[in-house]
Amino acid sequence: MSDTSKSAREMDHDKVLEQAAAWMKDGHKVALATVIETWGSAPRPVGSQLAIRDDATFTGSVSGGCIEGDVVTRALDKLDGGTAEIVEYGVSDARAWEVGLACGGRIRVMIEPVEGNA
């Protein structure tokens, strides 16, 4: 398997938490987003994660790319002392035009800052 320095450099797609921890060690602020529930045809299963760095770099995914933009924006807002938030995304949502799920599914995503120093 790849060592930490390699995964940090290449952003190994299956090592979201390892990447988040490495960013913390480098002195970045980091937030995590996790799919906690899905209904209908959801693009990524429960447990899928996205890690967001304070410069808006991100790795992993919580959808097929449909809602990551909104999740990243919300995550960045939480980096200075914000608290966890649970957001529901779906095609019937008021934000559908902007960040809806084209697949017609519905998902709940927990977005949270990583608190404390690594």
């Binding site: 938490l17 390892e18 921890a21 913390m24 990583v114 608190e115 120093n117 690594a118």
Partner: peptide
């Protein structure tokens, strides 16, 4: 999520 929990989880993995 607390940073300590993240580190412990990464260690467990």
């Amino acid at each position: 999520m607390k940073a300590e929990i993240l580190e412990e989880l990464v260690r467990a993995r």
